[in-house]
């Protein structure tokens, strides 16, 4: 990820703001979208990207964010279905090369991964980390 990216971050909650701040700090062009203007308070003072207030499931809002020009779209809203819809539109309609979505429901992972969406499931990731930590303790010599 060394080259300059045009990244659209959908959902500017804790995770979205964190991603937007980090990508902006690394010198990438960032657009953050959220349906609540107050959410942008989570963006750092040095964040140099754009903010768009609107529903990302509306095509008009994604067009305003110039998603057709984006190298990367990450959808991080609280709603799985919003993230999956945005990710699919970014991939299939706007042909964005790299598209990722946060999905809480582990049952969704397989179905959408088969459709070519890069899915990050925090529920499963956290479960794996807990289980790995337990396994390490069990495996360690007493």
């Amino acid at each position: 990820m060394s080259e300059h990216l045009y990244a659209v971050i959908v959902g500017c909650g804790r995770l979205g703001a964190l991603l937007a701040n980090q990508l902006s700090r690394k010198g990438h062009s960032v657009v953050a979208i959220d349906n609540d203007a107050d959410a942008f308070a989570g963006l750092a003072a040095e964040y140099s990207g754009f903010r768009i207030e609107g529903e990302a499931t509306e095509l008009a809002v994604l067009k305003e964010a110039k998603v057709d020009k984006a190298d990367l779209v990450i959808s991080t809203t609280r709603e799985d279905n919003v993230n999956l819809m945005v990710a699919q539109i970014a991939k299939e309609v706007f042909k964005v090369p790299r598209v990722m979505a946060r999905v809480f429901l582990p049952e969704y992972e397989d179905s959408y991964r088969r459709m070519g969406i890069e899915v990050v499931c925090p529920t499963r990731a956290a479960a794996d980390m807990f289980l790995n930590a337990l396994a390490e303790e069990e495996g360690s010599p007493k």
């Binding site: 499931t57 709603e79 799985d80 279905n81 919003v82 999956l84 819809m85 179905s111 459709m115």
Partner: peptide
């Protein structure tokens, strides 16, 4: 709309 899409998919 996001829910309608997800239901059908």
């Amino acid at each position: 709309d996001q829910d309608n899409l997800a239901v059908c998919q």
